[in-house]
Nucleic acid binder design. Structure first.
Lengths: 349, 349
DNA sequence: TGAAACCCTGCAATCGTTTGCAGAATCGGT
DNA sequence: ACCGATTCTGCAAACGATTGCAGGGTTTCA
């Protein structure tokens, strides 16, 4: 039923080789025949069968993307970049969701390997040894994880965090709390790295947690943070920060008057919170596009392709940060802030 | 480099046909050889080349999904269902994002056609004529759109809306506002269909809008709704409802004391708002799985496969709805609610 | 022991393309 | 008009799998 190259050849009165060349290597066939062939092909609505082509060329024209969890808004944002860049480079993309499971992820790469020219791994959950074993199966590009001399796209999370610290320092904060996400995650480590800037700025950082990187995690963390003697709270991500905001509102702690709150990621909801959240934006779409570029250049054999693409993060200042004590009704040096000490009991989970 | 069926055949000391059969048609080969072949295949790490198989069988073992916009959280939720169900049925999935563009969507189906056994269209943006032309290109399953006798998965949005109306009626609301989304969208039409139940319940509905189906659209709509003489506001979706909540909070209108607010979709953020949003949940993951089932059964030629799968919606009652005037400090019959009349000027966009 | 019946296995064609090689066509120059 | 040099074009093999058909081996029964 579908129209093949044979049909076109017959209709155009030439051989299949000529059709193939007319479409793929225009300089090898006379202009007149080329036009004629192209016209016939269009008329019949011919589209080459990529599988057949792949069989002989060894290239499939596909690439794969594996994400840990589609319902985490972070990944669709990247995917969207991958999508459009891939389409531009005439690649189709296979998608798989590994459910946050490293073994599953490795298996998916294996399963995909034959059908794609390369795979993009977003925030890979594989263990180092799994990863090591996977390298070489097919071309790989990693996003948000760096390993050996594999091409990677990295978000400069530490840099983003440094911007956040500088921002808080400039506002006059001297004691801040950092609410950790999953302890050993790459992201959490990077954020902590950025926090080291604080010392040089004369800021003390209380690291709390780890907490679940969710709204609920934020609710949980908020109370603990309030019990510390800090003027600003930096959350592992926006979801947690939103939770913090919500809990603080419940407890009648004013943001940013009583305490400043910072998030990370700049999810769409961040700008819609009350108050709108100051946060660090990552360039997810860009990351996706960059990953495709890296992958394509790796595939096309240009071993001179760059190996590491680092993307800036950008602090987005909104309304959840201000100078400490700013709008407080009683000046801080007169009345102690309504904040509990560490050793006092704390309400809520 | 990759291990082919030939390698396995050579290593096992049999012909390629035997290998093929040992793996695909176990009953056609002696148990002993089968075991031997399977063992060698595993040892060499053989995985059949799906493209090659597809060439001869005509089946690719892939299926495609096209969504209008990955950054709309509605779609990843469906995708996740598609993903896991497809993996279970041993299909790989191609993903494409058509950027809300019907023509692009049609083109993508064409491009995919040769590489997949069927395509799932989520909330297709194609015009009826585009759709008509696309049908027949390949097997199709539509989600959230019904057409001719194509297999479809439908969310019973009208039913969900009826639950919402019944809920409000039971609470005692008599005048409600509906904030419309994109005027001619299928979803908007379905919601309005469900609203017709209101009449039978003695409820008057003021239809406002259309508005952008976004947080900002909700901000915009909130003021207009307040100007109406209503006790409850039903938004086209949660994002708008969140905007409404935010605007209402700014204007010191208490929810649900002064006015009840209802959303639609049950996005993750809905439960985290203050107050947590009463909304209608759709079974997105289920829809994705159902679509795969329909597609697979259609592909495998069972023309007896069902054609229409309707999924219930479920009202999730949280804290943004209550009896009208419930917690109002002054009883409504004493002091008129702080709500403007339609003809008064209204602040904000 | 021989033949029929049956079960396995191998041969070879096939799917739709690409591509090296050789042959056909065209062209220019004399 | 003939020859060599250039273009073009076609033939056929190859990619990795599946599958109809036929042949080889084993078994069974007389």
């Amino acid at each position: 039923m579908p129209v093949t190259i044979q049909d076109v050849a017959r209709a155009a009165g030439v051989s299949v080789s000529t059709v193939s060349r007319a479409l793929a290597a225009p300089e090898m066939v006379r202009e007149a025949t080329r036009l004629h062939v192209v016209e016939t092909a269009n008329r019949l609505g011919y589209r080459p069968n990529r599988a057949a082509r792949g069989l002989i060329t060894g290239k499939t024209g596909n690439l794969g993307v594996i994400v840990p969890d589609l319902s985490n808004p972070f990944f669709p944002a990247i995917l969207k970049g991958v999508q459009s860049q891939a389409r531009g480079a005439d690649y189709a993309v296979f998608l798989a969701d590994c459910d946050e499971n490293g073994a599953e992820e490795a298996a998916l790469v294996q399963a995909m390997a034959k059908q794609v020219d390369g795979v993009i791994l977003c925030s890979s959950r594989m263990s180092p040894s799994q990863l090591e074993r996977t390298i070489g199966t097919t071309s790989l590009v990693l996003i948000n994880r760096s390993v050996r001399d594999q091409p990677v796209v990295i978000m400069d999370v530490a840099g983003g965090m440094r911007q956040a610290v500088d921002h808080l320092a400039a506002l006059g904060h001297r004691r801040i709390a950092y609410l950790q996400g999953p302890r050993n995650s790459w992201s959490n480590q990077q954020r902590r790295r950025g926090l080291r800037r604080a010392a040089r700025r004369g800021i003390t950082v209380n690291e709390l947690g780890p907490f679940a990187p969710t709204f609920e995690g934020g609710l949980h963390a908020a109370d603990l943070a309030l019990a510390e003697d800090v003027t600003a709270i930096v959350a592992y991500n926006d979801l947690m920060a939103l939770g913090v905001l919500s809990r603080l509102a419940d407890r009648d702690v004013k943001v940013p008057a009583d305490v400043s709150v910072l998030g990370f990621d700049d999810i769409p909801m961040a700008g819609m919170a009350t108050p709108p959240l100051t946060t660090v934006a990552m360039q997810n779409g860009r990351a996706g596009r960059a990953a495709v570029d890296l992958l394509v250049s790796q595939i096309s054999g240009a071993d001179a392709g760059e190996l590491r693409r680092e993307l800036e993060c950008q602090l987005i200042v909104r309304a959840s940060t201000a100078t400490p004590g700013t709008a407080r009704s009683d000046p801080p040096h007169v009345t102690a802030p309504v904040r509990r000490r560490r050793d006092e009991p704390v309400a809520g989970a």
